[in-house]
Design a protein around this nucleic acid. Sequence first.
DNA 1: GGTATTTGACCTTA
DNA 2: TAAGGTCAAATACC
Length: 320
Amino acid sequence: MEEVINSIRRASELVQNLQQDLPNLANQPETLSLSIDQITQAFTDAKEKLLLISRHTQTSESPPMLLHETTPQQPQMDATLIQEWLRSSHAVTMDQMFQMQLASMAGREVEDSERTIGSEGDQGQGIHASSSRPRRRSREGNQEKKKILVPAPQFGNTEMPPEDGFTWRKYGQKEILGSKYPRSYYRCTHQKLYECQAKKMVQRLDHNANIFEVTYRGKHTCHMSSTAPSSVPPEHILVDITQNTNTISSQLSPSVNLTLHPATATAATTSARGGPSTSRYAGDYPVLDMADAMFNSGSSSGNNSMEFLFSPTEDKSDAN
DNA sequence: GGTATTTGACCTTA
DNA sequence: TAAGGTCAAATACC
């Protein structure tokens, strides 16, 4: 466990260094990028060590470990210590670490998901609504599907999964047999404008209401800028549906109770009512904001991530 | 008035 | 035929 703490400590030092050097690095995106890579690597190292510890402590009959859940086998004490330590001595909180870890995981795991879940090239062609209702719904296997688990916010609107960088319009909700919670159906807000066929279904897990299962289908064709989200949504936690839940949970968080900042938990659908969500963290964590902006390169605000990076910090507070 | 959400009905598929 | 997925009218919000 000491190694884990050392890794986190090292990562946090890198964050602090970066934060201090930020004014000097503002015009050096490559150097910035390198620094962020180092930070994410450091956190990833810590996470992997935590995973190892977690697996050692888990017994075969222990239930699937999910976010916000702790089992008697888990080193809860260590997790608490880490959190306390981070709170007391560093500006990086666990939820922010979580964001960064997820961000660093996303790049790798998107590819895995493409291999394991994605089917073939028929992306989003299965559904074409028309006035004459020739509804051609492609069921399982006919369309690329990505299933991920997203931790529910603990504050604010806990009914919605955290924003994923796209704007969605809800078009249906359905009670699902055998499930405690209804499933919500969303499609891309720009479906008509750009004929974007991306859709997603959101449902709480039966055994853990703190986790949303989000299934993405189809691909976004509504990109409007180079900084717009890629065709693959930012994967918070990817789930290979062929794997068991232990794998899923270990990707979520090995042994630490993590909390999401309410600002990250904006409604899944950013509509004209609330306007696009731009705020992410209410606190003063420019580096984390920056990392978030870079890794979750898909804010519905449409802001260019580099603009976000290099805009004056006082402006950023206005955005909050 | 425009846009998003809700919700019952309808359609498709296994 | 049941269940899941979608439509579209009604409603709400800005």
